Computed example of a mutant assay.
Amino acid sequence: MSYDESHFPAPRRRIPRSTLVLSIGALVPAAFAGWLIWQSTGGSDDGGAAQAASSSAAAERPGSPGPEPRPSVSRSSPTSPSASPSTSAPGDDGAPGDARPAPGEGPLAGKVVVIDPGHNPGNFKHTAEINKLVDIGTNRKECDTTGTAGNAGYTEAEFTADVSQRLRTLLRKEGATVKLTHENDRPWGPCVDERAEIGNKAGADAVISIHADGSGAGNRGFHVILPALVKSGGADTTKIVTPSRDLGERVAGNFVRATGSAPSNYVGGGTGLDVRDDLGGLNLSTVPKVFIECGNMRDSKDIALLTSADWRQKAARGMADGISGFLRR
């Protein structure tokens, strides 16, 4: 991840059963494919009840470098984001080129979505600041981390900034009010507790935190992280566990359809879902929120996707369709 802190209902349109079987049968585990096909051919709009195994707070995930936050990638000169940050302040002020319907129009009019681009390119130069401990409800953890990077130097922060801006544009076209937790417009951070607070203060109808993983070579695919039931200290996820699962399952299902990527082969047992209780961004959220790890930056096949602008657009589309389905349910 990524840092930290990081039902499959398909869209309601009907797709011939034979077409789906041919297109996704080779991409996803049999159980997941069968589920997705059932949804696409008239299954319940409430989605399934896929169960992901909870990761312990001591281990970020099987095969990953370590617990959240992930240890910093050792780099002296990180690559700067290929997608230049917007000159507008975080929020819904509008970025150049964003096409949006008139105020109050569009299927998502009146809905607020907060997008949280994982990490910040400046974190590499501010290790003292990001190593400061903050309260995540259950315990204290580092403010943030640098995130991971591909073997050739393409950073997670670079990836998340690009996909977040693509996702913002798509959601605005549907009439949503979209806010970003940051746009690389600050020297470092924000800390994980502040990221959660931004979504809470916005009264967001949905929040998604975008990441890419840094696991071992051969570990492939995406997974969506859902909040566990946590009630400790300042953390209480009681009210968001159920809607967050709905949001996460919709994002995962649409991510498969849009990108052709399979669910993770090393987290979630083929469901593409992982439940965690050790991420401050989820523990401290009072609104529906999920994380998505879009792929593994340390695998040669996954990094080829993550560095493709065409694939990143598909990834943004999958997320947008999942969020839209959740908000229009």
Results as ranks from 00 to 15, higher is better:
V251K: 07
Y154W: 07
Y154A: 14
Y154R: 11
S74C: 02
A89V: 05
G199Q: 00
P69Q: 14
E197Q: 12
I292R: 06
F32D: 03
P62R: 05
G153E: 08
D162K: 08
R329Q: 13
S232R: 14
P101M: 06
N131I: 00
G218K: 07
V275K: 07
V192Q: 08
V290L: 10
V114M: 08
D213G: 08
G253E: 13
T79S: 13
L305F: 05
R168N: 04
V21S: 06
G66S: 15
Q51M: 11
G91E: 08
D144M: 09
D144C: 11
G216H: 03
S76K: 10
F159T: 04
S84H: 08
V192K: 10
V114G: 07
S232A: 14
T127G: 01
S264L: 13
D299M: 12
P187L: 04
R298E: 10
G260D: 13
V251Q: 09
R14G: 03
T307P: 00
G260V: 11
D185V: 00
K289F: 06
E249G: 15
N123A: 04
S55W: 05
A31S: 14
R276Y: 01
R245D: 14
N123R: 02
A217K: 05
G218W: 05
S324Q: 12
I37D: 06
G322P: 09
A252H: 09
P85E: 08
V241F: 15
D162A: 15
D92L: 01
S77G: 01
